[in-house]
Structures are given as C-alpha cells and as structure tokens.
Amino acid sequence: MKYLKTRFPIYAALLRLYPKSYQKQYNQQILQTLADMLDNSSSNTERKLIWGRTIIDAPLSIIKQQVVYAGDIMTNETPHFVKTTSIFSALLLLPFFIFITFDGLSSHSLYNSWFWHPPVIASWLVFMPAAALLLSLGTFWRWSQQRRRQNQTSFVKTIFQWQYNWPMLAVAVLSAGIIALAFGHDSVHCVVHNPVREIRNWQTTWTCIKQG
C-alpha cells in the first residue's frame, strides 16, 4: 500500500475524499487495480487513455459514494427529531417558492393581490424563512452536541461532518438566502405596502409616496 501511495501520490490523496469506511475497504484495491492497468499497458498512448479514464471516473465515483454514505446515515443514524424538524422547516420555505414561481409564471398576477400585502407578504417572505432558519440552526446545534458527547469528539469536527448535517444546513442556507434576498433586493423602490422593501429603502419609498 505504501509503495502504491508513493507511486501515485496525487491519486492516493484524491482517494482520501471517499468516505472513511469505503477508503478502508477499497482504497488499496483501487490503487492496485490502477497499477495493474498501467503495468499491463503496451504504449504511452494507452497509459494516457487509462489516466484520462481514471481522472474522469474518480470524482464521479467519489461524489456517488459520498451521496450513498449520506443516504445511509440518513436512514440508519439520523434521529427522528432531526428528520422531523428538517422536513418541517423545509415546509416553511415552500410558500416562498410557490408564490414566487406562480407570480413569475402568471405575469405578476399576485403583485396586486393580498399575497403581496402585509401582513401576508411579511409572513412568507421574512417570518417563515426566519423560523426555518432558527429551527434548522437549533436542530443542527442540538444534534452536533449530541454526536460530540456520544463520540467523545470535538464540536468543530462534528460541524464539518456534512454527511450528517446536510438536511439542516441546506434549509439554513436557503432560509438565509431568502431573507438576504428580501432585505437586499432594491431593484424596485416605492412598492406601496411592501414592508421589506420599504424598510430597506425607507427614504426612497418615502419620497415616492410623497410624490404620489
């Protein structure tokens, strides 16, 4: 194994991106198979083709194994409260996507409806994503602490275990994105009764309102 690692140092380093259990079981075999392929090749062109195939194959295979690993964790190790809160917080983001998509597809037909007026707009644009963000971050914190205690490992290490954290992190990133979009979106000023844009651009909005 050591000999193979020194023979293909970059490829061996790339194989470290596989999940740990997979690495333990198959990394040596993968390196040995590559060595066999290269040793039995008859020309430089053939060797280049083998390397080409291997370089394309490695990232795809690594992504696939990581996804499989994350799926296994979700099925076998993820506690019920993580699954429930992840689904619930994801559902809190659903109205945003439904309204934005429907409005976009129907030539802004929702723009003058009650969906776009306070307090309804504030609820689906700010409050529900904020609740989803808090819920997912809270769950993320709780489960990371739980794993830290169980595995006697550092909190920082548990934070970077994306295979465990991805459902909560995905919801948190989406929620933060929606909130940032809402408060950062300033392409339209003077949209009467849009609390987010009015808060963000209150001076412009106020000028617009005064000008009628």
Binding site: Q25, L34, T54, D57
Partner: peptide
Amino acid sequence: IKLGPGALYGTIK
C-alpha cells in the same frame, strides 16, 4: 464497457 477503478469498486461494494 471500459470501467475506471472507482466505478468498478463502487459497483463491487
């Protein structure tokens, strides 16, 4: 069918 080592061992697993 020409497999790379990654695809081969993924399927073997």
